[in-house]
Amino acid sequence: MIDDDARCPCGTGETYGACCGRFHAGRAAPTAELLMRSRFSAFAAGDEAYLLASWHPGTRPASVDLDPALRWTRLDVHGATGGGPFDDEGRVDFTAFWRSAGGARGTQRESSQFRREDGRWYYVDGAAG
């Protein structure tokens, strides 16, 4: 886990406790972008339970097996469409940066789709982009 006073991995500049930690603790993310950021932080923290809980039931896999050799190091959000507090759907475009235990580096560029149901945002799916 990540210390509440540490800088949040999602890149907002806030502490983990004031940023993504509150969503990992059960608070609903108010926007699709904040849910996406909290999911990135869950990847960085190795929080498979949060990744599953924030995945839409219609597309959620039975399990998530994170690669312990990968460390997610940075998130760049390129833009969002919809996904606000009064929307039911949204899309967030981002690049996530990683480093392997062996020192290799890489990125994952994605356009993720989100849906809000019963006041909670869920990750639906993503396309490489």
Rank of each mutant, 00 (worst) to 15 (best):
G102P: 08
S100N: 06
G17K: 03
T95E: 05
A32L: 03
H24V: 06
T73G: 01
S112P: 03
A45G: 12
L75S: 03
D87A: 09
G13E: 06
F43K: 07
F40N: 05
T95D: 01
A49N: 14
R22V: 05
A18F: 01
F97M: 15
G82W: 08
R99C: 13
R99T: 14
S100L: 07
G106Q: 10
D88Y: 09
G83E: 04
Y122N: 11
R39W: 11
F43P: 06
P9V: 10
G46I: 11
S63R: 11
C19L: 15
F94K: 05
C8K: 03
A49C: 05
T15H: 01
P30V: 12
L35D: 10
G129M: 09
L75D: 11
R22C: 09
S54C: 09
G21F: 13
A62I: 07
A44L: 11
F114P: 05
Q113L: 15
W121Q: 08
A62R: 13
D67I: 10
A80F: 10
D4I: 04
Y50V: 12
Q113W: 02
L52D: 03
D3A: 06
T81D: 15
H56N: 14
P57M: 02
C19P: 01
R39S: 09
W55K: 02
T12E: 00
Y16G: 14
E48W: 01
R99Q: 07
L75A: 00
C10R: 04
R22M: 04
R22F: 08
A96C: 00
G102C: 15
D76H: 12
G58I: 04
V92K: 02
R115I: 04
R116N: 08
L35C: 10
R37W: 12
E89G: 03
Y122E: 15
R105S: 03
R37K: 13
G119C: 11
R7D: 00
Q108M: 13
E33A: 13
A96M: 09
L66W: 05
Y50S: 02
G21L: 08
W98Q: 08
A101Q: 15
G126H: 10
E14S: 07
L34P: 00
G82Q: 03
T31I: 10
D93I: 08
S111V: 15
S100E: 15
R116L: 14
Q108A: 06
D65M: 04
G13S: 07
A127T: 15
G103F: 12
T31H: 00
F23W: 09
G119Q: 14
L66F: 02
I2A: 00
G84F: 02
D47E: 11
S112L: 01
G26N: 07
W98R: 12
T15D: 02
R99G: 00
R60P: 10
P57D: 05
P30S: 13
R39Q: 04
V92Q: 04
D93Q: 06
R60N: 07
R74D: 13
G82S: 10
Q113E: 14
D118M: 06
R27V: 06
